[in-house]
């Protein structure tokens, strides 16, 4: 990044909102610069010209009704203009075209789940086609979050108990980022990832890439998210390998370790096939059905010593992904 880039006020714009937004932003920007230079320049000129000198007294203050009215009324014209342009822009921001493609976005501490029209999911990364209106239908499973994509100039809060929407139409292919813009806390301590590195998680880590792909690749992408991922040599992941990949991608590692240490939730090491004690004192065997139920209805059978804080993954994982996770947990037996 060179120094002229550093001083640029706005990042690159990659959506149909971009040109209009940037025009209005820079209009206010240069208007503000002009007003600032005018007002402060006048003040500095007066301070120098009328500085205190021996024998020179201040003149008593008079009145100038015309000037006072002028600087009360003149801003109104400007403000009406700004309001009008701002509102017109807001109307287009909140009015998705009827043919927009819906992507269901679910926020939770501290990850995002994106559900595509064919039922496939991605976690913490979203892929969209270029030149096609896309509407995010956003909800939250716990506290407030906000979807913010600077390159598209859009933002909307995720509120528990209601749906909110935003829409955009990308105009460039490539990668940009989305962020969480509404404060949502952080984990009490760093979490050790699958790679063995401890990382802080929280509000600030709740972002990820936005991949904008050509429309010609869109169908291929949609089919791909329903299938197990493939190795570089083209062979499909085994279910356990896919489960290991989901363990990180779905943020299971935020609360569950695979090395025996207890975190917010029980470890996955050596649990499959064993009995566990539940909060109500009963014992259940950890089998396929227990694991599946614990992912979809996590607070139904909570292990003794842990709090019922896990969000439900109902609707976030396909059956094949559930199978893959079960296979991974079984492999840790």
């Amino acid at each position: 990044m060179n120094s002229t880039d550093l001083m640029k006020q706005l990042p690159a714009q990659w959506s149909t909102f971009g040109p209009g937004y940037d025009w209005l932003f820079y209009f206010i920007y240069w208007m503000s610069v002009a007003l600032f230079v005018g007002i402060i320049g006048t003040a500095i000129f007066f301070v120098v010209k009328y500085r205190r000198r021996p024998g020179v007294k201040a003149e008593p203050t008079g009145h100038n009704l015309v000037m006072e009215l002028a600087w009360t009324v003149a801003p109104v014209i400007l403000l009406v203009l700004l309001f009008h342009w701002g509102f017109a822009g807001y109307v287009s921001l909140t009015s998705p075209p009827p043919d927009a493609m819906d992507i269901r976005v679910r926020a939770r501490k501290w990850s995002w789940d994106f559900e595509y029209p064919n039922g496939g999911h991605t976690a913490n990364s979203v892929t969209i086609p270029i030149n096609r209106p896309v509407r995010f239908v956003i909800s939250s499973e716990d506290v407030l979050h906000a979807m913010f994509i600077p390159a598209f100039r859009v933002k909307r809060d995720a509120v528990p108990g209601m749906y909110s929407t935003l829409w955009f139409q990308a105009t460039h292919t490539g990668d940009t980022r989305f962020y969480c813009a509404e404060y949502c806390g952080a984990a009490d301590a760093p979490v050790i990832g699958a790679d063995g590195v401890a990382r802080e998680t929280g509000h600030f880590s709740m972002g990820g890439p936005v991949h904008i792909i050509p429309q010609s690749q869109w169908q291929e992408f949609l089919v791909g998210i329903l299938r197990a991922p493939t190795h570089a040599n083209g062979t499909e992941f085994t279910p356990a390998e896919w489960g290991e990949q989901l363990y990180t991608a779905q943020n299971c590692n935020t609360c569950h370790s695979v090395n025996g240490s207890a975190m917010t939730g029980p470890t996955w090491q050596h649990i499959f096939g064993h009995d566990v004690a539940l909060a109500d004192g009963s014992h259940v065997p950890v089998d396929e059905n227990y694991v599946r139920r614990s992912i979809l209805e996590p607070n139904a059978q909570v292990v003794q010593g842990f709090n019922p804080v896990m969000p439900s993954y109902q609707g976030s994982l396909t059956d094949r992904q559930l199978d893959a996770l079960i296979a991974y947990i079984r492999s840790l037996r």
Partner: peptide, 13 residues
């Protein structure tokens, strides 16, 4: 900037 609706959306938070 922040009072102007559409401009605020990007700058908010």
């Amino acid at each position: 900037f922040l009072g102007t609706l559409s401009v605020d959306i990007h700058l908010h938070d």
